[in-house]
């Protein structure tokens, strides 16, 4: 193999890892919310985009450093999620077939956010990027990787590990999994189901915001990112199985590598076709997804 092939291969590998970790993070957030509240968040792409846009605004207008701006944007997820929960999400907690109503509401939200972002950020710039936190290149064995991307990758993996530990070992994680499996039984065993709903929506929003911020720290982006992410994340959730964090991570990694390989050799549209095809196939053949028990 000549050096050029190796370089392309390495860049696919690192981009795939990076995208895979970010996809997994966002999809875990969406799948947790669906598993507990039955809320298929169609506007997850807008959430994903709003986070780095806020950080970009803080950096360009107020001169904050990227880590400070990202931290502030992440904190803003708390009032943002609380507001949505109190005004919209809470109303449907007791409706039996609420996932359709939620789907329509979040599709409406998507339209509102898309319009708002178009008349604000869309007027200010075509392309957005956050200044890199770290400069330089590290050599992992014989493979070069930008320090900045390495940092983002480490952060993403740390967050995923933290999420897994939360779900497995913490009281809240156990309550959440109990609600996934059986709402009534969980309530009978003393789980406050509504509190779990509220917290899981907050957790999901935080995960999507974090994923969006990591994406913005590693790559440049524009407003079309929202829709592409929404489609990708939904496809990951459905293929992995709604409510399955493991499924979201495994399929997210697979889709990340697919995206990296496809964008190296062809137009990204083909990747979208592949995701959508996979989603339709799983919907028709095994609607519960590949990783549900």
């Amino acid at each position: 193999m000549d050096s050029e092939t190796i370089l392309v291969g390495v860049s696919i590998l690192t981009t795939g890892l990076l995208l895979g970790a970010i996809f997994s993070l966002a999809a875990s957030g969406v799948t947790i919310v669906y598993g507990s509240i039955w809320l298929p968040n169609a506007s997850n792409g807008q959430f994903f985009l709003i986070a780095p846009l806020i950080a970009w605004l803080l950096v360009t207008s107020f001169g904050l450093s990227t880590p400070a701006a990202a931290g502030l944007a992440l904190i803003l997820a708390v009032p943002f999620s609380y507001f949505l929960e109190a005004t919209l999400i809470r109303r449907f907690y007791d409706v039996p077939n609420r996932n359709i109503a939620y789907f329509m509401v979040t599709l409406g939200l998507t339209q509102v956010f898309a319009g708002l972002l178009n008349i604000t950020f869309g007027q200010w710039s075509d392309q957005f990027s956050l200044p890199p936190v770290l400069g330089g290149i590290s050599w992992i064995g014989p493979f070069p990787m930008q320090n900045n991307r390495l940092l983002v990758l480490c952060l993403a993996i740390t967050l995923l590990v933290a999420l897994f530990s939360l779900m497995r070992y913490h009281r809240f994680g156990r309550a959440l999994r109990a609600v996934f499996q059986n709402r009534e039984a969980a309530a009978l065993r003393g789980v406050d189901v509504r509190a779990v709903y509220r917290t899981s929506f907050l957790l999901g929003t935080l995960m999507i915001f974090a994923a969006g911020l990591l994406y913005g720290m590693a790559l440049s982006f524009d407003l079309t990112l929202a829709w592409n992410m929404a489609v990708t994340v939904f496809a990951i959730m459905i293929v992995g199985g709604p409510g399955s964090v493991l499924g979201a991570v495994v399929v997210g990694m697979m889709f990340g590598f697919t995206q990296a390989v496809v964008s190296a050799f062809a137009t990204p549209t083909i990747a979208s076709f592949a995701y959508l095809g996979a989603m339709l196939g799983v919907l028709l053949l095994k609607p519960d997804g590949l990783f549900t028990r």
Partner: peptide
């Protein structure tokens, strides 16, 4: 875009 926002808000209002 204003139309998008109005339609989006209406979708939410109708559903809720």
């Amino acid at each position: 875009q204003v139309k998008d926002i109005i339609y989006g808000l209406l979708i939410i209002t109708v559903t809720v």
